[in-house]
C-alpha cells in the first residue's frame, strides 16, 4: 500500500510549528516511515500533486488571497489538519481584531495602505472545514504524532475539553497561583501535558479555552487573588481573540 501523501502549508504565522517537525529527533524517522511528504516549503522545493491525502496547515487567514488559497488546499486534500495556535484558534494574529481594520493597515503600511489587502484574522476552521486540530504555540510534538496517527487510521481525535490544571496536577507541579503568578491553565484546554508549567512558565492559553468555562467562578477566583480583570482579559486575548468569531457565527445552544 502506498504511503499517504502529506503536504505542509503555511499562512500568517512564524512557521515555528513546522520547525517543530524538523525538531522531532528520532521520532521524525518513524513519522517519515509512515507518510510520504510531497510538499513542505520550509524543507523542500517540490510542489505536490493535485490530490493529496493530508494537508497540514499552519497559520491564520488574514487577507483575501489567503482565503482563496486555503479553499484550494481544502479542495486538494482528503483530510485537513489545522496545525498550531494560529491555524486552530487564530493565535496572536487575532490581536489585529482588537482594532479597526483601516487603522491597522495605516499603522503597518503607511499612506499607501489601500494597496495592501487585509481582512479580519480568522482561524482555519472559520473559513473551511477542518478535520483535526493540533493546538498550541508551538504544537506539542507528542500530540501532533497522536493526531497524525488518528488521521492516518481514520479515527477521531478529541482535543481534551478539560483544563490544563488536570495534566498539571498529574505532573505534580506546584500551582502558579500559589507562587503568586497568573496562569491561564484553569481555562485552557489540556493536551500539552502542561508543557510550560513543567518548565516553570505560566500557561498563556495558546490551546484555546475550554468550551464551557465557569466565567463567573473564574471572576471570583481572579478577585480573590487580587488580579486586575483587564490583565486577565489581555492575557486571554493574546491568543484567543478569534474566539469572538465563533461566538458570533455559531451561537452556543446552552450554558
Amino acid at each position: 500500500m502506498a504511503k499517504p501523501k502529506v503536504a505542509f502549508f503555511d499562512f500568517a504565522c512564524c512557521e515555528g510549528c513546522q520547525l517543530q517537525v524538523a525538531n522531532m529527533g528520532e521520532m521524525l524517522l518513524d513519522v517519515l516511515g509512515a507518510i510520504d511528504v510531497v510538499e513542505f516549503r520550509e524543507v523542500m522545493s517540490e510542489i505536490g500533486p493535485d490530490k493529496i491525502d493530508v494537508a497540514i496547515v499552519e497559520g491564520s487567514i488574514t487577507d483575501h488571497h489567503a482565503v482563496e488559497r486555503i479553499k484550494k488546499i481544502r479542495e486538494r486534500a482528503s483530510i485537513l489538519i489545522a496545525y498550531g495556535a494560529c491555524a486552530c484558534i487564530g493565535g496572536v494574529n487575532g490581536m489585529k481584531n482588537n482594532f479597526k481594520l483601516d487603522d491597522i493597515r495605516k499603522e503597518v503600511y503607511g499612506k499607501d495602505y489601500k494597496y495592501f489587502d487585509s481582512v479580519e484574522t480568522r482561524a482555519v476552521h472559520q473559513v473551511v472545514k477542518v478535520d483535526y486540530k493540533v493546538n498550541g504555540c508551538p504544537v506539542y510534538i507528542p500530540e501532533f504524532v497522536k493526531v497524525l496517527k488518528a488521521a492516518l487510521a481514520g479515527l477521531p481525535y478529541e482535543v481534551p475539553d478539560y483544563s490544563v490544571c488536570v495534566e498539571c496536577k498529574l505532573n505534580e507541579n506546584v500551582c502558579m497561583y500559589d507562587r503568586g503568578l497568573t496562569c491561564l491553565g484553569p481555562v485552557t484546554k489540556a493536551g500539552c501535558n502542561s508543557w510550560c508549567i513543567n518548565n516553570n512558565n505560566i500557561c498563556y492559553g495558546c490551546r484555546g479555552m475550554v468550551s464551557n468555562p465557569n466565567e463567573n467562578g473564574a471572576k471570583d477566583v481572579i478577585a480573590k487573588y487580587n488580579i486586575p480583570m483587564d490583565l486577565v482579559v489581555n492575557k486571554m486575548n493574546m491568543y484567543n481573540k478569534c474566539r469572538e468569531i465563533d461566538q458570533r457565527e455559531q451561537p452556543k445552544k446552552k450554558h
Binding site: 478539560y162 483544563s163 490544571c165 488536570v166 496536577k169 498529574l170 491553565g185 484553569p186 481555562v187 475550554v210 468555562p213 465557569n214 463567573n216 467562578g217 473564574a218 471570583d220 477566583v221
Partner: peptide, 13 residues
C-alpha cells in the same frame, strides 16, 4: 457549583 471551575484538582489529589 457556582464556585467550581471544574479543573479536577480536588479529585486528582
Amino acid at each position: 457549583g457556582k464556585k467550581c471551575l471544574s479543573c479536577g484538582n480536588c479529585t486528582n489529589v
